[in-house]
Computed example of a mutant assay.
Amino acid sequence: MKKLIQILIILFLISSCGRSLTKDKTTETAIINDNHKSKEQLNNEVFLYDESNDTVKKNTFFLKSNFKLIVFPTRNEENDNQINFALLGKNIDTIIKYDVISTKKNTAYFDGSDFSNFFAIKQSGGANTKFWLFDKTNRIQSINGLQVKFDLKNELIIYKDDNYNLFLFDCNSRKNIPINIPFNELKKYDCMKYGNIENEIDIKKVSDHFYYFRFNICDSVVSFRIRK
Rank of each mutant, 00 (worst) to 15 (best):
185 E>Y: 02
62 F>C: 03
94 T>P: 05
140 I>V: 15
207 S>K: 13
97 K>I: 06
135 D>K: 13
170 D>M: 04
199 N>M: 06
36 H>E: 08
179 I>D: 00
142 S>Q: 06
184 N>E: 04
5 I>P: 00
62 F>K: 09
13 L>T: 02
94 T>Y: 12
127 A>E: 11
140 I>C: 11
120 A>E: 06
66 N>P: 04
45 E>C: 08
110 F>A: 06
74 T>L: 03
46 V>R: 14
196 N>D: 11
114 D>P: 03
64 K>F: 08
61 F>A: 01
148 V>E: 02
137 T>R: 12
49 Y>T: 13
149 K>M: 04
45 E>G: 11
110 F>G: 07
193 K>S: 12
57 K>N: 10
29 T>W: 11
33 N>F: 10
36 H>M: 07
19 R>K: 02
125 G>W: 10
153 K>W: 00
176 N>T: 01
94 T>G: 03
24 D>R: 10
90 K>W: 07
129 T>E: 09
133 L>W: 06
7 I>H: 02
161 D>Q: 06
217 I>W: 11
78 E>V: 06
211 Y>T: 04
52 S>Q: 11
60 T>I: 12
114 D>V: 03
203 I>A: 06
76 N>I: 01
190 D>E: 07
21 L>D: 06
65 S>K: 07
224 F>L: 06
81 N>S: 12
184 N>Y: 01
137 T>H: 14
223 S>N: 14
169 F>Y: 12
140 I>T: 14
99 D>N: 09
172 N>D: 03
148 V>D: 02
153 K>N: 09
163 N>D: 03
